[in-house]
Write a protein that binds this DNA or RNA. Structure first.
Lengths: 145, 145
DNA sequence: TATTGTTATACTCTATAACTATA
DNA sequence: TATAGTTATAGAGTATAACAATA
């Protein structure tokens, strides 16, 4: 077993998980990036630039993503009271409701796979995935979402 | 530890790996999907419809992806000799060369993370990711790529 | 008739550049 | 001057529908 086997397994399982997320997003007319935005906003407000930094997209792309989600009533914008240049973004009640359903869908979709592992194996897997997650908070002030 | 923790770790590590792949793709003007196409074609020819099925995109989208890769000299098209409706797609020498470099880049980018695990932990991780990979070949006649 | 692939169309996602408002 | 966000623009990615060629 070379380290290539690990990279291979990571990349392949990644595409598998991504496929699940993409499908669940598509079923709700959401792109992967919009799915992530909803996930991040689930338990916090965030400024446009911070979201863009965290997701690795340009702030102009972020504007468009927020526009489309706002038009659908999932996301709201507020002027930041501390810095009047900044815009805070947050989930509307409809956004919260949808995000909750999406999370449940993802867990349900991955459950057949995770059920193959017993409790200890699950603990081990989480531990072994930890090195991958180092730095997963990305740049900016957003903690892991 | 609930099964939610596993799903969480999977999804987060996934976005991390995806970020690496997206960055390496972008550095070479390739989308994630094009990156996957090159990976699939690394050791086989494939028909347009099979690629589309495997990647989960429409055949018309596949046409566009192939067009752009062909315009860049990475991919070639051949009429399938057995079924004259079908088109076989394959890597050009330039495509093979680029794909090899991309693979090396990905391994190099993930190496700092995988290096955190010793040989036995790597074996364990590959084993524990296995349930995720079940069915990862997707529909169609393409074996895991 | 059914399948393979392409084309036309429309929309989302993305980055770059230019802009306004605020710091 | 620098930063936050938006808008304009252009190109890639995507799906749907209609089409030609072949099975």
């Amino acid at each position: 077993m070379t380290s290539d086997a690990v990279v291979d397994a990571l990349v392949r399982s990644c595409f598998q998980v991504m496929g699940v997320l993409t499908r669940i997003g598509a079923e709700n007319d959401l792109s992967l990036t919009q799915l992530r935005v909803l996930g991040i906003l689930r338990d916090r407000r965030a400024r446009v630039t911070d979201l863009a930094l965290f997701l690795g997209v340009d702030k102009s792309s972020m504007s468009g993503l927020i526009d489309r989600a706002e038009r659908r009533g999932l996301i709201g914008r507020d002027r930041n009271p501390g810095d009047r240049r900044a815009t805070d973004v947050f989930l509307t009640p409809a956004g919260i409701e949808l995000t909750g359903r999406l999370y449940a869908d993802v867990r349900r979709a991955l459950e057949p796979a995770t059920r193959e592992l017993d409790a200890e194996q699950q603990r081990t897997l989480v531990t072994l995935l930890d090195p991958i997650l180092i730095g997963s908070a990305g740049p900016g002030p957003l903690s892991p979402a």
